[in-house]
Design a protein around this nucleic acid. Sequence first.
DNA 1: GATTGTGCCCTTTTT
DNA 2: GGGCACAATC
Length: 778
Amino acid sequence: MSGILEHLNEPQREAVTTIEGPVMVIAGAGSGKTRALTHRIAYMIEQGINPFSIMALTFTNKAAKEMKERIMQLVEPGAARNVWMGTFHSIFARILRIEAASLGYTSEFTIYDTDDSKTLINTILKEREIDTKAYPAKYILHRISMAKSALYTPEDYCDNAEIQEQDRRANKPLIGEIFKTYNARLKRANAMDFDDILFNTNVLLRDFPDILYKYQCHFQYILVDEYQDTNYAQYLIIKRIAAMHENICVVGDDAQSIYGFRGANIQNILNFKIDYPEQKLIRLEQNYRSTKTIVKAANSVIANNKDQIKKTVWSDKEEGELITLLRATSDNEEGTLVANSIFGYKMSRQLEYKDFAILYRTNAQSRSFEQALRKQDIPYKIYGGFSFYDREEVKNVLSYFRVVINPTDEQALKRIINYPARGIGDTTWRKLQVIADQRKCTIWALLTSLNEQSSEFNMGTINRLRDFVTLIQSFQTLINKMNAFELAKHITDSVGIIKLLKEEDTIESQNRIQNIEELLNAISEFSDKQVDEVTGEQINIDLPKFMEDVALITDQDQKDDENADYVTLMTIHNAKGLEYPYIYIAGLEENLFPGIQSLSTREDLEEERRLFYVALTRAQTKLILSYAESRYRWGNITLSEPSRFIEEIDPNLIERTRKASFRGTTIKEDRGYNPFSGRGAWTFSGDKRYESSQRSQSASRTQEAPKTSYPKASASDFVFADADEIQVGMRVLHQKFGQGTVVKVEGVGPNKKASVDFDEGGNKMLMLKFAKLSILKQ
DNA sequence: GATTGTGCCCTTTTT
DNA sequence: GGGCACAATC
């Protein structure tokens, strides 16, 4: 037998060799899940299974790439390359491009990213004269996304009494209608948003039996990684394709389900048993990654969750060091403490910077760490947050490519039709929109049909529009004549974007030029990398090919320089699936982690706790937790309390030394409060004129006792209020609007709002989630 | 129609 | 503290 089965424990070997029939692998953190998956695929190939018939769905493109590389080390690399491996989105976008015609798209359809979708929503709102304050694009998009993930059409959405009731209660009854228009616009633009990729794949497999049959025959073996994070749409795709052979292996860990907010459904794990009664269940419970201390800590935390599949993750590595807890007085000090700590460990233990990662809950927290690391000349790299492809200039250039390939792509068209400025402004664009709507045609169709007789526009505008059309058409004729890089370069040159930026001649514009050059380099590199899998010849890659999954590329996918030595910074979500010897988990404060938005329901809090579990289990050797007693949020200093999650770790596993001690007492004594009574951060007003009288003793540790300048009541007469406590008739203090009287309260939970008549400044409707109100004691 | 100014609201997490 | 949307002004 080959070496593939060596160095596997018993359950792992079972997961690797059970290749026929449905298999569910419940894999605890660090239990060699990736190892099992890669070896399984290698084993299948070695058994003579055609790699093309294997579909392996991963959570990120990076994970797919890494798994491929690992499989290549086990079997003949050429074979490994032929496995269909990638994210749900990239694999099914690929299939949708092949089958686009069946669904009424062309294979050049554009994939809209969240930004495009948001802009489109806002356009629709403006057209319908709907108040964007009452209907935030982000919220609408979230509702639509959840609907699509659950396979609701706009019509289903409007017909569903429960959904309608929810929207009505949230004061947003128009969402269904907006959804309808939004989808119609996407279709008109020959575009899909992220959720459409999964939605439309389901439609394809549901309505076209011959196509379903084709892919059922094709994909005889299906593997799904991170199964706990799949949503209903993904679940059903898998179920449909796997129906013929039922050779399906899903791998997941309910304790690491952290994407509920985007529709992931742990239920999928439970459904597996029902859908495939003859399933084989394999549990990987031995953790090879972390010390006993770390595993015990993680277990003690997750035990607080009610929803979980029982399992026992254990480690037979050494006990390891205790967990260190760092207490900082401010977010900046937290940065410094962490940077010092990293430097200290690196020096005293002969480590490299790449042995360290700093994890946090929100991207905004990276700032203080960047500052501190830079100050100490510690190299670092941030993953996530603003992606290269999110940059304005990059988007503009990509929009040119998008329009050239798919001229009905309205979001891209809108972006570039007047960039660089060519006298086609907002008024003209709106006119175009209206006419296209009337004629039920695309804007591009309208543009190409304009002639001198078109009475809608004046002569000058018509000429400018026609010049633009000619420009785009001239690029279109080159698609098949030039490779991706040549055409991209040609377009950026002839449009004059670089020239425009050069004239601007600021540091900012020079940066932008560099980014555009970097984009062109990426295209060049992409073209060079594409090699025919059979002949080994280099394939000439055209621009449409490059653009195919640009929208699906994320920063996480960029290759790591193996030799580079830097500290890694990222959100915990981004850290999923990764491991580092030294892990710092920062910002362990109430209202930050767990986040304020997760406190209202048990389910949300439990997801937050799973997130903490994921963070803890990234560590191999040593965990360092930190929190700050105050931090800048929304430009104000906010005081905060240590996270309840710290308490949930078995206290015997934490060392309290140095600044880490809670002022020499135990955590319990320090915090003595009921976790569900009036918790909350104390926010100082922007001008620092008041503080909460509640626990003012601790508040004044970091802040001078401020003087009030309010005439009727002094600051100490106010007590910070939780949203639940606000009632009609109360006198309240707002950090900006001053004093007022509550006249109306509506909404529930995080959506609770209050209408307040302010003494100066009139009536305001405030989201209590954000407006930090204090109540006048009476 | 473009550019600059001002106020407002905001911070989860991501394919 | 910052980004975005709308307003004012040239």
